[in-house]
């Protein structure tokens, strides 16, 4: 049972101060020129207003674009390894959208699947989510096609829905109870607040069940994948703005004396992504790489990890230099028959 409360929008300032006093670091959407990213904020006035969606996802709070896993050096008694110091602080991600909050389940599934990824979990366990429901959407949004919605509570600790000059506050998790408790006097009873009337309308773009039925049978339909991917340039923009893409590359940055092992984001769209040392590349053409991207998110992840690898935030399609519109392509696949 999700408890509901109300809070005046003017109380945000006090809420932020309360969280900061309690030792939380607050990340929220911030404008950087024409783009928006999640960055540290001091007060609600720093938060970018009127956004449908940020340019970059909040993923980097738990999976930075690059990180040192450990350092190594030549010591007197051989190679010495120094683990990276764990430096994350308790962080509230504020003002993320319900689709983004949902995305962390996909990241968790990957990083806890066969082993517990310590650097990831160290950050992940210190993150809380205070999301804001969507009262507007654009042509790229398709959360309702991937099991979410503009007022979806899954993944959020607190979900705020703007209702006039107030927020309807939904306390979703135990951590949400804690976050509400820190500022209990800012909240009142939520009677008479109509959430549904204040949510964006996001049309369903494809039938997810149908897609999941059809997709595994399309592997050998070369023409379908070529047709969809001919204009794809093979860059990594879609993967790097995606809140659920987790693929990474391991690099050693070293001199002969020592160095660091580094984890960096990677993308299945790159031609080198699966290139073997032998020279063989199992995904030699862009159509196979595009197929992998779609299959990974909509076939392999649900099959193996019981979670969809997409939350319908639409960032990939907004960022694509050549307008590879994912929802449109998925609709074509779903309707293409078996």
């Amino acid at each position: 049972m999700i408890e509901q409360k109300r809070m005046s929008t003017t109380s945000l300032e006090a809420l932020f101060q309360r969280y900061k006093t309690a030792g939380w670091w607050i990340l929220a959407p911030r404008a950087e020129g024409d783009i928006t990213t999640f960055g540290e904020v001091d007060s609600p006035g720093d938060v970018a207003a009127g956004l449908i969606q940020t340019t970059l996802s909040p993923k980097s709070a738990v999976l930075p674009i690059w990180e040192e896993l450990f350092r190594f050096r030549r010591g007197e008694s051989g190679i010495e390894v120094v683990e990276a110091a764990e430096s994350s602080v308790p962080t509230i991600i504020f003002g993320l959208r319900p689709c983004d909050a949902r995305a962390f389940a996909a990241l968790d599934a990957v990083f806890t699947w066969d082993s517990q990824d310590e650097p990831y979990l160290a950050r992940r366990n210190k993150v809380a989510f205070v999301s804001i429901a969507c009262n507007q959407a654009d042509d790229y949004c398709f959360c309702t096609s991937t099991g979410g919605g503009p007022g979806d509570t899954a993944g959020s600790d607190l979900l705020l829905t703007g209702v006039g000059d107030e927020y309807l506050v939904e306390v979703v998790t135990e951590r949400g109870v804690e976050l509400a408790g820190i500022a209990g006097e800012l909240f009142g009873p939520a009677e008479g607040m109509d959430k549904a009337a204040h949510l964006a309308s996001v049309p369903v773009r494809f039938d997810l069940d149908r897609l999941r039925q059809v997709l595994p049978k399309t592997f050998d339909r070369e023409e379908l994948w070529i047709d969809q991917s001919l204009r794809c340039l093979g860059c990594g923009a879609c993967a790097y703005v995606c809140p659920t893409c987790v693929c990474f590359d391991i690099q050693d940055e070293a001199t002969r004396h020592g160095g660091a092992r580094v984890r960096c984001w990677d993308s299945c769209g790159f031609s080198l992504f699966t290139l073997h040392t032998s020279g063989h590349n199992p995904r030699e053409v862009q159509s196979h790489r595009w197929r992998q991207r779609v299959m990974h998110k909509f076939a392999y992840m649900p099959e193996r990890l019981q979670v969809l690898g997409c939350v319908g935030c639409g960032r990939c399609s907004r960022a694509c230099p050549v307008d590879m519109n994912l929802a449109e392509h998925l609709a074509v696949i779903a309707e293409s028959g078996e």
Partner: peptide
């Protein structure tokens, strides 16, 4: 400092 190394500039 904002660069993601997505190489869209190169690809395009």
């Amino acid at each position: 400092s904002r660069c993601l190394k997505c190489y869209a500039c190169r690809a395009a």
